[in-house]
């Protein structure tokens, strides 16, 4: 599988040995569910949720995967958590293939990669107390014996996310907590096993705008304190910029632009990134700008457009766009999958 194209390799594997996760030409296609009488055309048999993603995640960085619904970012997150098996390609965690490990090894790896989910209301079992919820990863992976040790580790975790003093929260049920507190519990649960990588799937999109900062700050502080690596999945570019060092923009199952967050927001190369940025509502009422630079609706992931997949909606398409571009270097550590980027 010649997936390490020349211009891709620094993307996947930073040669300083700084790479924690390597995503190699990952694909996940879901078969289309057919009802008894529908005829499925041969090229419409799969939903191409993730369609060839190659990306390296560096140690202790915070990287956001940004895109709208249907772009594949959530599927990518599930693949990284090994909740799904890939159709093609693989993910290496510290040079070990996540999908080729034995059960015993998988246990050890699982503990290194933990997750925080989107909905603080349904990601906690309503029938369990905070203690039970946060101690579950310890219990499931047989990391502690019951009793004192569990209590201490859970308390430490709760303290780390700002739920102080821990004894006050241990016996509470989720319905007794606010949205922000629940999300903190979810973070504490992810932290309790001392992971190296945390994947956060839209961790703040269901919280009120005024408490988002609360949770984001908790996560950032934890990163500094515990040398964590974060992958943030979000559709909100402003949040992505605030919270991450690097940003990867996804469209229809592929990464179309990746680079330092500030750089991408100030100098976007790919037209889709530009459209996303132009779509952000302003925060200054004096600077209201008109519309989005985009045509049409998001196509279904079943029939990926031929050539550059963004072409049908792109305002700048030209003849070269008949061929699907790979990620090309357009700046320092900045790559875009667009033929327009070749000029620079």
């Amino acid at each position: 599988m010649p997936f390490l194209e020349e211009h891709q390799s620094p993307l996947i594997n930073d040669s300083n040995g700084n790479t924690l996760v390597q995503i190699r030409n990952l694909k996940k296609w879901f078969p289309v569910r057919r009802s008894l009488f529908s005829k499925i055309k041969p090229d419409e048999r799969f939903v191409h949720a993730v369609d060839g993603v190659s990306l390296g995640i560096r140690k202790e960085e915070a990287i956001s995967i940004v895109g709208e619904s249907g772009c594949g970012k959530t599927t990518l997150a599930r693949l990284m958590l090994r909740l799904l098996e890939p159709t093609e390609g693989t993910i290496l965690f510290e040079s070990r293939d996540l999908f080729a490990t034995t059960k015993a090894e998988m246990h050890k790896l699982r503990v290194q990669i933990q997750a925080v989910f989107q909905d603080p209301y349904s990601s906690l079992d309503p029938k369990k107390t905070v203690l039970q919820i946060v101690s579950e990863p310890l219990e499931v992976n047989h990391l502690t014996k019951r009793g004192r040790e569990t209590l201490e580790r859970v308390s430490y975790s709760l303290s780390a996310v700002g739920l102080d003093p821990p004894p006050r929260f241990l016996a509470k049920f989720p319905y007794e907590l606010s949205g922000g507190q629940r999300q903190r519990v979810a973070i504490a649960r992810a932290m309790v096993v001392n992971p190296r990588l945390i994947i956060a799937d839209e961790p703040v999109s269901m919280l009120d705008a005024s408490i988002r900062a609360e949770i984001l700050n908790v996560m950032l502080n934890l990163r500094d304190k515990f040398n964590l690596t974060y992958v943030f999945i979000t559709h909100d570019l402003a949040v992505a910029r605030y919270v991450s060092d690097r940003m990867a923009v996804m469209y229809l199952g592929r990464v179309v632009e990746v680079g330092p967050a500030d750089e991408i927001c100030l100098n976007p190369t790919h037209p889709y990134t530009k459209a996303l940025l132009s779509a952000l509502p302003t925060t200054d009422p004096r600077k209201r700008h008109e519309g989005v630079e985009l045509k049409g609706e998001v196509p279904s992931a079943v029939r990926i457009p031929a050539g550059c997949r963004f072409r049908p909606r792109c305002l700048y398409a030209f003849d070269k766009c008949n061929a699907e571009p790979e990620l090309i270097k357009v700046g320092k550590d900045h790559y875009a999958a667009c033929w327009l980027g070749e000029a620079s």
């Binding site: 958590l81 909740l83 246990h107 699982r110 503990v111 933990q114 997750a115 989910f117 989107q118 909905d119 349904s122 990601s123 906690l124 079992d125 309503p126 029938k127 369990k128 579950e136 990863p137 499931v140 992976n141 979810a186 649960r189 096993v193």
Partner: peptide
């Protein structure tokens, strides 16, 4: 529900989830 998914991500097997999450609910 997300908490079942979260359990799986923590490393829980099917029987643990059935016993510990599904049954009580």
């Amino acid at each position: 529900q997300a908490f079942v998914e979260a359990s799986k991500a923590s490393g829980a097997g099917d029987f643990y989830i059935l016993r510990s999450h599904v049954l009580p609910n």
